[in-house]
Design a protein around this nucleic acid. Sequence first.
DNA 1: TTCACGATTCTA
DNA 2: AGAATCGTGAAG
Length: 199
Amino acid sequence: MTTAALLGSPWHPLLSQPATEAAIALLGCWLVRRFADGRVIRGRIVETEAYEAGDPACHGYRRQTARNRSMFGPPGQVYVYQIYGRYHCINLATEAADLASAVLIRALEFPDTEAIAGAGPGRLCRFLAIDRQLDGSWLGPTSPLDLEAADYPLGTLIQTTRIGLTRGVDLPWRWYLAESPAVSRRDRRAEAEQMGVSV
DNA sequence: TTCACGATTCTA
DNA sequence: AGAATCGTGAAG
């Protein structure tokens, strides 16, 4: 995939903004996984987290390394890393090149599939066979990964804190769709406060 | 070269 | 609550 193809992608504007905004814009969109044999699986994005430069929880907080290189890529580059030796997590680079800014996809809702399959960053990557081989790849119509527009209402949007961190724990940079059965971890308190707010 | 640890998940 | 499990990167 070339940069030219990326620039032609309608997703460029969506991802060319701070991760905290892209994380919201991605909700309801479809993450498309294309396999070599032609099979395609779509999952609706229902939970995201933002990671920004200057954020102590961000993998690119200190500096660019071999592992986090693609997090510094232009918007639309895919950043996949391995965690706890057994799971993978997928991020989409956002905002601008040379900036550590990305959105972590934390949950996907798959049609006609048990919600548990897409509930959590490790589970959804396992279901979609996403690993480090896809790190550094680009979103696009001929790529293994792509995005498609949201095609039905989001329902209730909940904003809360991120999961599993030891630093930056208080930043409210996680968002999820309250009505989705695939959300990895609910924040009942945030829901009580925000359920009345319609999107 | 060493070594502690992590944007998780599963089991008890 | 505790374990599994290993690549990465900061330290020495």
